[in-house]
């Protein structure tokens, strides 16, 4: 029964974090909240007797996925910065992208 209560609490936390991830203005916050959802989910997995899954979810779902997101975000920001910094056309500038 206590497991159930813990799961329900975890569920509410995940729900809150999930909604937060969707509504957050900042992508960084979103990414971290989504990683948090995964982390809490891996706790739930541990609670219900699935340590393999918990490990995987923690490592992949909350760990690696977050890192991948952060990398992508950094790359995307870099691209934005360059777009604003350099008005000159890039050597490989894409025609299709122009509005």
């Amino acid at each position: 029964m206590w497991t159930d209560v813990a799961i329900i609490i975890a569920g509410l936390v995940m729900l809150a974090a999930g909604i937060g991830a969707i509504v957050a203005k900042s992508l960084l916050v979103s990414i971290i909240l989504a990683g948090g959802v995964s982390l809490v989910a891996s706790l739930v997995f541990l609670l219900i007797g699935a340590p393999d899954v918990a490990m995987t979810e923690a490592a992949i779902g909350s760990g690696l996925t977050t890192v991948v997101f952060l990398y992508a975000l950094a790359r995307s920001k870099q691209a934005d910065k360059e777009d604003s910094d350099e008005s000159a056309e890039h050597p490989d500038a894409e025609k299709a992208g122009a509005p």
Partner: peptide, 10 residues
């Protein structure tokens, strides 16, 4: 686009 990807992970 990135938000969509985040939503998919959720």
């Amino acid at each position: 686009l990135f938000k969509i990807a985040i939503a998919f992970t959720v």
